[in-house]
């Protein structure tokens, strides 16, 4: 299936894997790219040399294009931005802010720039400052979220900009993919479905928690701090919300979640850890390879969109 995004990124299928902290490392990114999608390494708050190492390892596993997601609030963002330009990847997606100041550096290195946006104004601004595409991410997503839904945000962003729009948040199968195309997107970004991929290195407990999740298991914490995070409810989210309701300080709340995503992903602590996942977790029912997932989604979508 050809769209402006498949051409921009040199990929077969317009499916991008989200740049999830701790989860989106070189094995997963390479597997998604090898399957014809676009894999991302999530730089999150990792030091620049760790990101460099991840890029090099991914290159050993695939000769297909892949990218890096840079979390702009990271204390290492400046160095990571430079390392990415030095190592050379096909594209960079950015989250948690405005990547304007790196635009020239990446453009000069021939890297496509795709900011994740949560509003129309930000999408217009990114287009004005040279972005090649934008990811319009609704609050159905896992992890840090905005306040608009994919259903409402994607068509508004698609109307406001001329560059291609990638829909994210709440997409987990061919129906979601087809719906996103109907809303004006030219690709989708998925995170939660890929969390349980065979190639994903997340702890078995985490995968099992996502696979067993029901529709109503999704919880948002941190609304009061202005930094809402979506995850699957457990002991940690219940304690967090209790503290939040009792008016705990930002510091107290932060302390509760310190290292908690890492503990869930790497150690399998799904009780006290943060099991980040999107609202679509309830739809994710089994572990499959990235190739099986992507081919299944494309097949379902092509039937729905009636294309050959």
């Amino acid at each position: 299936m050809d769209t402006r995004v498949t051409k921009l990124l040199g990929i077969e299928y317009p499916i991008i894997q989200g740049g999830m902290a701790w989860v989106a490392e070189h094995n997963l990114a390479a597997a998604v790219s090898n399957a014809g999608g676009f894999g991302l390494i999530g730089a999150a708050s990792a030091p620049a040399e760790v990101v460099r190492d991840e890029i090099r390892k991914a290159k050993e596993l695939t000769d297909k294009p892949f990218g890096v997601n840079i979390m702009l609030l990271s204390p290492h963002a400046d160095e990571v931005a430079r390392v990415v330009a030095e190592e050379g990847v096909k594209a960079v997606t950015t989250g948690a802010g405005n990547p304007e100041k790196y635009m020239e550096l990446w453009k000069n290195a021939g890297i496509k720039v795709i900011p994740v946006v949560a509003s129309v104004a930000l999408a217009r601004r990114m287009e004005r400052y040279g972005a090649d595409a934008v990811v319009a991410e609704g609050m159905e997503s896992g992890g840090h979220i905005g306040s608009q839904t994919t259903m409402t945000l994607v068509p508004q962003v698609a109307d406001a900009v001329d560059i291609p729009v990638i829909a994210a948040g709440g997409i987990g199968d061919g129906r979601g993919f087809a719906a996103a195309m109907m809303l004006g997107a030219e690709a989708v970004q998925m995170g939660t479905r890929f969390v349980v991929a065979s190639e994903s290195i997340v702890h078995g407990n985490y995968k099992e928690r996502v696979i067993k999740a029901k529709d109503i298991d999704s919880e948002v914490t941190g609304m009061s701090t202005g930094h809402p995070v979506r995850s699957l409810r457990n002991k940690m989210t219940r304690e967090y919300i209790k503290l939040e309701q009792s008016g705990a300080s930002f510091e107290e709340l932060e302390y509760l979640t310190l290292g908690s995503l890492r503990n869930a992903v790497m150690e399998g602590d799904v009780v006290n850890g943060t099991v980040m996942a999107g609202q679509i977790a309830g739809l994710v029912k089994k572990e499959q390879t990235c190739r099986e997932m992507i081919e299944e989604i494309m097949h379902e979508a092509e039937v729905l969109l009636k294309i050959q």
């Binding site: 509003s119 104004a121 930000l122 601004r125 202005g226």
Partner: peptide, 11 residues
């Protein structure tokens, strides 16, 4: 105003 509001204004 939050950061998204400020982008609205600045645009």
């Amino acid at each position: 105003a939050d950061s998204l509001d400020l982008f609205e204004l600045v645009m």
